[in-house]
């Protein structure tokens, strides 16, 4: 038997923080590729600490629903899962290339394949592009359009910016969009000045965040000048400095994220049959109904 654990942050205050985790877990459940699928959280239940013991499978694939390698993926999750042998060096990562490492969880005697975060997987590039398609409602969006991939960025962890730049570079190389930029909340180049970085009239802004919350629903829209007050919402697209900005919240809510989770598990040796193809089918058809260019945001908490 094999099990999948999706390890996410969760929230004590915001009931919606775990929605993407549940949604992607359910997509994976529908494929039947795993005998067991569990959501696990740092701030909700089941906690990382107690999730592995709820499984009957001997082989467990743990995929962190986090954007970059850092404090949570290198320290918190392994510690709380009791992967006592884990050292970040075992990932042999340059900051965005962690794939997986196989360990034993001490409290349960199971084999745990501890995977790198979803945010740095190559398949994440496709999710960002799909997000651009769904927010504009245009499956071939790209020509004459600029794309800003926005991350948190922090001076404390250089990997936070690396993940954003990694995907921005990959999308730029494809030549699909006229311009592609990596922008940040807490470091240069800053998302506040988004219109300075683009010559194109249309700019699609995709925040590389796992869930919607304070950053994606309050900070970023106000910083970019989409709205005076996040509580009033904003238009998609919104006019700013003669540009049209297409912004609709965290990329982690995109259905195709379930594909990235499966890719991580497959890279670690999970036997998935045709699950990846099926998830791509399910989530790409779901895009049509999800995308609504006219919608305005809901205030986060």
């Amino acid at each position: 038997m094999q099990a999948l654990v999706i390890a996410a942050h969760g929230s004590h205050l915001n009931p919606d923080a775990s929605n993407p985790t549940y949604a992607h877990a359910d997509t994976v459940r529908e494929t039947g590729a795993f005998d067991e699928v569990r959501e696990a959280f740092w701030k909700e239940e089941p906690h990382f600490r107690e999730v592995i013991r709820t499984l009957e499978s001997e082989e467990v694939f743990v995929v962190p629903l986090f954007i970059s390698e850092g404090y949570f993926t290198e320290r918190i999750i392994p510690r709380e899962l009791r992967l006592d042998e884990f050292e970040p060096e075992q990932w042999e990562s340059d900051g965005t290339s962690a794939s997986q490492v196989t360990l034993e969880a001490e409290d349960v005697g199971k084999t745990v394949h501890y995977c790198g975060p979803v945010g740095t997987h190559d398949a994440m590039t496709d999710v960002i592009v799909q997000r651009a398609e769904s927010v504009t409602g245009d499956p071939s969006v790209g020509e004459g359009v600029g794309l800003a991939v926005v991350g948190h960025g922090t001076e404390r962890n250089e990997n936070s910016a690396k993940a954003v730049e990694y995907h921005a570079d990959r999308i730029r190389e494809r030549g699909r969009f006229d311009e592609v930029e990596a922008l940040f909340m807490d470091e240069e180049p800053e998302v506040d000045d988004v219109t300075d970085f683009f010559a194109t009239e249309d700019i699609v802004v995709v925040p590389l965040f796992v869930a919607d919350g304070y950053h994606t629903q309050e900070d970023i829209p106000e910083d970019m000048g989409l709205t005076e007050d996040y509580r009033l919402g904003w238009n998609v697209p919104a006019e700013v400095d003669g540009h049209r900005i297409w912004y609709a919240g965290a990329v982690g809510t995109e259905g195709l994220m379930a594909d990235v989770i499966l890719e991580r598990a497959a890279d670690a040796g999970a036997e998935l049959g045709d699950a990846i193809e099926r998830v791509r089918q399910i989530t790409s058809s779901a895009t049509e109904s999800e995308s609504d260019p006219e919608r305005t945001s809901q205030a986060g908490d």
């Binding site: 906690h47 107690e50 999730v51 013991r53 709820t54």
Partner: peptide, 9 residues
């Protein structure tokens, strides 16, 4: 969550 596992243990 996990109450059955811990009860069993």
């Amino acid at each position: 969550p996990a109450t059955i596992a811990n009860w069993h243990r």
